[in-house]
Design a binder for these strands. Structure first.
Length: 324
DNA sequence: TTCCAGGTAGTCG
DNA sequence: CGACTACCTGGA
């Protein structure tokens, strides 16, 4: 017997849900879209809960939930507020952006765009490692494959959904088809296709990093402690994970821990910042990162998000590519 | 077909 | 420390 809830979350400052889903943030893939609602499975208080979300005509969030057990509405709405960063006051952000002529044009392109957080820190660690890849499309497929192969499967009225596997499960997964085959020893079925290994998820050479990182999260690195650390301390700690360099570390802290002072610096942000603030110069990525964190402070994560989306929509990104 | 992208890890000086 | 290259995979 499924329990259902239906309620509304009103937002005081702008929110654009579909823009938030489709702005290329690599914290979690876009949700399944069906009958006007976006669907995704969450674990809330260790219980599975399907969330269906849409924006109604006045911009509020219309929420429908389905879960085997009763879950307090308060817990559900607080999860939703966390995932979509609904507690961030975007009007304050826009005041901040308005003060910088380089940033103010981003507002019109990004109205209502919010940081789209990960389900939880561990999932964020792994999907961020997988994101050091060339295309969002491949990254999306990889994350979905990992969930489908090793996550827990739950059925709801709109179909099957999978959780992200735990550190213990993911840490024990075969890296490639050879290892998968070896685990069968002599009981190998005839026409067997090897697909339950990490490389089959298209993560390439990151497969071994992902497995090792999962093991380290399980045994060594306590993610809960990270939340209370000073930023640079937390940064240095996640850097110890294999496959995690400066860019991925900042993504983990931004999307997995809500640390808004993070300024993840990829090649695109580097090009955009150089174009806007240091024309003709060539800065090192750590210099760009430092510039972002010093100048944008608590808004650094949003500035990075807004600059990227603005650059993409305004055609700036294309021109920066050609120039090379 | 070859080449390139994306960020990290590893190697060399 | 800095500069350079290998790593995978799929799209140009």
């Amino acid at each position: 017997m499924k329990k259902k809830l239906n309620f509304i979350i009103k937002n005081k400052t702008p929110l654009n849900l579909s823009l938030t889903f489709n702005s290329g943030q690599t914290s979690q893939p876009p949700w399944k879209e069906e009958k006007g609602y976006f669907h995704e499975l969450f674990m809330i208080d260790r219980e599975p809960c399907l969330l269906k979300v849409r924006q109604d005509s006045v911009g509020s969030l219309d929420i429908v939930t389905e879960s085997p057990e009763d879950l307090p509405k308060k817990k559900i709405s607080s999860k939703i507020r966390e995932i979509f960063s609904l507690n961030d006051d975007l009007n304050q952000l826009y005041d901040f952006l308005s003060e910088d002529p380089k940033l103010s044009p981003t507002i019109d392109f990004c109205k209502g765009l919010r940081l789209f957080k990960a389900h939880n820190p561990f999932e964020c660690v792994i999907s961020s490692i997988a994101s050091s890849n060339c295309s969002i499309l491949r990254w999306t497929r990889s994350v979905q494959d990992i969930k489908q192969k090793w996550g827990e499967k739950y059925h709801f009225s709109s179909g099957y959904f999978y959780t992200f596997p735990s550190p213990a499960v993911l840490g024990g997964v075969p890296e490639h088809d050879l290892e998968e085959m070896q685990r069968f020893e002599d009981n190998l079925p005839g026409e067997f296709v090897f697909e339950n290994n990490l490389k089959a998820c298209g993560v390439g050479y990151r497969a071994k990093y992902i497995i090792k990182a999962a093991q380290m999260v399980r045994e060594d690195i306590n993610l809960k402690k990270l939340a209370k650390m000073k930023y640079e301390m937390a940064f240095d700690t996640v850097l110890e994970l294999p496959g995690v360099g400066p860019k991925v570390a900042d993504c983990i802290l931004l999307y997995g821990f809500g640390r808004g002072e993070a300024f993840p610096t990829d090649v695109w942000i580097k090009r955009i910042i150089e174009h806007l603030y240091f024309p003709g110069e060539d800065l090192k990525p750590p210099e760009i990162r430092e510039f972002g964190m010093e100048n944008f402070g608590q808004y650094a994560g949003y500035v990075q998000l807004y600059l990227f989306h603005y650059a993409r929509k305004s055609g700036l990104l294309d021109s920066l590519q050609k120039k090379k």
